[in-house]
Simulated assay, not measured.
Amino acid sequence: MDLQYSPEQLQLRESVERFVREEYDFAHRRRLVASDPGHDEACWQKYADFGWLAIPFSEDDGGIGGGAADVALVMEGVGRGLLLEPYLANVVLAGGVLAALGSAEQKAQWLAPMMTGQTKLALAHAEAGGRYERAHCDTRLQHDGQGLVLSGGKVLVHGGGVADAFVVIARSSGAVGDEQGLSAVVVPAKAPGVAIKAYATHDGTRAADVTFDRVALPASALLGQEGGAFDAIDRVLDRGIAALAAEAVGAMGALVDTTLDYLKTRKQFGRPIGTNQALQHRMVDMHIALDEARSMALYGALMIDEADAPTRRKALSATKIEIDRTARLVGQEAVQLHGAMGVTEELNVGHYFKRLTLIGLSLGDSNWHLRRHAAN
């Protein structure tokens, strides 16, 4: 197996790194966190101009035809720059469900304008009390004459506050935890009966709780076969894990570099604190953890297209478990080695630590993935 990046992938990585380096410094991010909508619309349009929003979609759908490794290169840059724009929500999650289940007409209506930056999408999947279980769904989709009616509520919809439309997972039949009976529909954000409560999360990114009060939808809003959406949803959420793993690697890499520079320049008793052997050992532990995380992120990206679902689930759970462990180690060491400065708002170290903490709680925490790993 050739694990070398192609010239095109190297060019993609360089374009992301250059954008972060030249146009998205930490001061810019801090201003955006306090702004409305909490990210830079001009930067989002640049994502589209660079082709990043079209990477994982087929050429037949108007995309570039890249794979999980290409998305990972972008997400690693997202992590290194702590970018606030909802790339994961649009491209990987909502766009992934549309690409998997949508018809040519639905893709032309929703996916194509997302790739050009004209439309923002968000996946409305999680519900209160679900505890990461992917089949947990009590939002109901019912027939009403020639159309459909959607009722229920979703929580922690990433990018939901600025979404033009939601890809909503709803139950057409069965009990709350059944895998069969789940459907996906596209719901315009301004449709009558849709209520959105947006908020900032602990790490500065934005999410929303969304309720649907008997929202009337045309039959054409249904994506794919009614009641048969679970397998596509399951794979898309695993793609989300692979993307989060790459983002975590980018954030960890930035923390390792920042901490090493600090140890080289911070002086006590007339010499850099990095000359202390105990601190050198801790720095080595951080480097080792980063390399372990990078290997597991690559493993997750390579396994996302595995045809056998249990094998794929096991691999992506292993990836998430290891990413959570290494992110916690690198984040905690970076904060401690910076001393009290590590948790100040003015220093980026604490912000990276917050983002890594939220990644650890996204799409299943370590305990949930340990159970899934054992079950597959």
Rank of each mutant, 00 (worst) to 15 (best):
M1F: 09
L10I: 05
L12G: 00
E17V: 07
R18Y: 00
E23C: 05
Y24W: 07
F26H: 11
V33P: 02
G38E: 01
H39Y: 15
E41D: 09
C43F: 01
K46T: 13
A48L: 09
D49I: 08
I55W: 01
P56A: 04
A68N: 03
A68K: 01
V74W: 02
V74C: 02
M75F: 04
E76R: 15
E76C: 05
G79Q: 01
G79F: 05
L88H: 15
N90H: 12
V91R: 05
V92E: 02
L93S: 11
L93D: 01
A99W: 03
A100M: 03
Q109Y: 03
M114N: 03
L121C: 04
H125R: 10
E127M: 13
G129M: 10
E133K: 15
A135I: 02
D144K: 15
D144N: 14
V149C: 13
H158P: 06
G160P: 11
A175Q: 15
E179Q: 15
E179G: 03
Q180C: 07
G181F: 13
A198N: 10
A208F: 09
T211L: 06
A216N: 03
L217P: 04
L217A: 04
A221C: 12
G228P: 00
A229T: 06
D238T: 02
R239E: 08
R239D: 08
A242S: 14
E247M: 15
G253D: 05
V256S: 01
L260W: 04
Y262R: 14
K267C: 13
K267G: 00
H287T: 13
E292V: 15
A293W: 09
R294Q: 13
A297N: 10
A297C: 12
A297T: 11
Y299A: 12
G300W: 06
L302D: 09
M303I: 04
T311M: 12
T311A: 15
D324H: 09
R328N: 12
R328C: 06
Q332V: 02
E333I: 06
H338K: 12
A340L: 10
T344S: 14
T344M: 12
L347C: 02
R355Q: 12
T357Y: 10
G360Q: 04
L361D: 04
N367L: 11
N367R: 14
W368V: 08
H369M: 03
H369V: 07
R372A: 12
